[in-house]
Amino acid sequence: MRIKESEKDGVVVLTLSGKMMLDAKSAGLHDYVKNLIEQGKTKVVMDMGKITWFGSTGLGALLASYTSLKDNDGDLKVARATRKIRSVFMFTQIIKVLENYDTVDEAVAAIK
């Protein structure tokens, strides 16, 4: 999995791409977010439109990131989650805590 960082209206946008499965990079997503928190960046949007595979390690890192941001008065929104990811969010009820938006702009507007 690759992580590309950009900023929009004071919100960090992490564009994730590739396989979000059982690899060090997927688990490393939480460390990446913790590093952002240390820099005082606590509003994060994750663009998941380019994720080709999605597994429990990626989901665990995503949820841990959400908790760490919330614990630091921040927030996490998801944008452009694929149909498969949305299905998992729905069946596990993750959708109740982690909102998905159709576009990055919508997610940024919601978190500002």
Binding site: S56, T57, L59
Partner: peptide, 24 residues
Amino acid sequence: SFSIDQDFLQYKNGGLGIPLIKSL
């Protein structure tokens, strides 16, 4: 099974596979 009431930080380095399969 996975639950949204759990502490998500326990899954930061993995361990979510079976709970996820159980909930799906």
